[in-house]
Write a protein that binds this DNA or RNA. Structure first.
Lengths: 127, 127
DNA sequence: ATACAACATGGAGTCCGCTCCAAGTCAAGC
DNA sequence: GCTTGACTTGGAGCGGACTCCATGTTGTAT
């Protein structure tokens, strides 16, 4: 797969894909004779995972650690799991926060609608 | 309330509070004779809201717009509600994504545990 | 043959959201 | 009277994660 195909498929710009390779988040991608990148299935799997974790807010730094552990083989699996569990905890907390914010938004929006309906234009308690 | 009390209460640094005031996210806070900030209840309400929206990922730019609409009075309420609804949609989408990621993490972690239990050290399909 | 688009590279620049700094003021305690 | 600590200001600096740029090479279409 070319870089533009991968870019298309995973919603990452070509620049970002090159950047990830440059910083070693993914190993050096194979090139064709002419020097053009030719992404293998394994690369794509990793990119999918990276994309997923990045959009969930895992820092590049942590991913870098994780991907390097993968390359070091099976004996690092405990440490890798640790990283995943850590991230899981972070995400669960984030989701809780998000739910609180959503509740707050809902209330506010409901309050706007209420005002609209009753045609009363006074300010309500919420800012 | 002094800046350090507000900072304490809402988990924002004094620097961040001054920064929010500087960029006009909150209106100029009242000062005591000696020039020290004295936060009023209204300021605190706004800060609570800002903190909440910021940690849910609403960009400062959007909040700036929202807060400026508030200052313009009741006739902007429709536009304000629009911003909130927009943000709500963004958050709902984000939460969906987050749930997908959590699912993925769970699966991976389960996979690690499985491997551990069965004492088989072979790689599993997931990266 | 020439034009064009898609790629490559190394390195510089950008954006966001703070965070830190230097220099100064002030109130309270010793 | 002096030190200490919490505050003030304007402005510079920073970290993360890209994003853009200049320059160069290729393969393909006209």
């Amino acid at each position: 797969m070319t870089i533009s195909e991968v870019s298309e498929q995973y919603g990452l710009t070509a620049d970002t894909l090159r950047y990830y390779e440059k910083i070693g988040l993914i190993p050096r991608v194979e090139r064709k004779k002419n020097g053009v990148r030719d992404y293998q299935e394994e690369d794509c799997k990793q990119i999918a995972f990276i994309k997923c974790m990045r959009s969930a807010g895992m820092p590049v730094e942590t991913l870098l650690r994780y991907m390097s552990l993968i390359r070091q083989g099976e004996e690092t699996s405990k440490e890798r799991m640790g990283l995943l569990v850590e991230q899981q905890e972070i995400l669960l907390k984030k989701r809780q926060e998000m739910d609180d914010t959503l509740k707050r938004l809902e209330d506010k929006i409901a309050c706007f609608k209420e005002k609209e309906k009753s045609k009363k234009r006074q300010a309500c308690g919420c800012i």
